[in-house]
Design a protein around this nucleic acid. Structure first.
Lengths: 131, 131
DNA sequence: CCTTGACCTGGAGCGCACTCCAGGTTGTTC
DNA sequence: GAACAACCTGGAGTGCGCTCCAGGTCAAGG
């Protein structure tokens, strides 16, 4: 019955840092930018994150690190918050990003080839190891 | 006899833009930052690039786009300008960058898997095409 | 009580890699 | 000879994604 919000252990900001590798500042920034929805608060006003948020932040990082802009990320989150009706749009967004990532891989491959090519031009290192 | 500076056609800034896809501003910026050595000038003070520069700028772009910082790029250029004695150092720099690029590729692959995984969760699009 | 430390807020600051601008010269075209 | 385009210089501005800061609250420990 806990489809969306498993009410397990709530995590403090510090714990989020430890588990996601993302700083508190960045976590707050993401929240402000609408990437984390409304984060719960303890009675003293301190943030309490959900187990799920750990995973979600990791997904966010993964998308960010592959070049998705904050803006697209926000769009994606808003769609997610809006429920099933937006499935198609989210699908398209991911699909588009996949294309971007695939292009990045092709670019990297080309770069790698160029680097290999240049490396091959240093004959003294061609085969052996450098000390 | 033209080992380093083939004295063929000299290129205007505009022509460089057309052939490299890099803006004049960026070309000047690169020059200022020491990535292009001393660019020749026509009698009126206008820049005249070498044929070689086209290729070199493309290499620069390739390295930049794979995340090499301006600082490392400058280091690499300075080494290049200093002659053969620096071969080993340049080799190491490229080698290090290759490792960086290889890591980027692994990261992209991981990201791609995650994206595929998420895409697979939209059943209505699982097999067919979306209109 | 007083300190300590984790947390809060709104807003300022930063680093990078460009990108743009003002103001000026040169050289070609009508 | 006036207009125009391409170029020059030094320096300021921009956008992104954080990152840091001042000033304050709250809870626990000594």
């Amino acid at each position: 019955m806990d489809t969306t919000e498993a009410t397990g252990k709530l995590l403090t900001p510090q714990e989020m840092v430890e588990r996601t590798g993302v700083s508190v500042d960045t976590l707050r920034y993401y929240e402000r930018e609408g990437l984390l929805g409304a984060v719960q608060r303890a009675s003293n006003g301190h943030r309490r994150y959900l187990e799920n948020d750990v995973l979600w932040v990791q997904v966010l990082r993964c998308l960010r690190e592959t070049g998705m802009s904050m803006e697209d990320l926000r769009r994606y989150c808003e769609l997610g918050a809006a429920g099933e009706a937006t499935d198609a749009a989210r699908y398209e967004l991911l699909l588009a990003h996949r294309r971007v990532v695939e292009q990045q891989m092709r670019d990297l491959e080309a770069a790698l080839e160029l680097i290999e090519h240049k490396l091959a031009h240093y004959p003294q290192h061609h085969t052996g190891r450098s000390t």
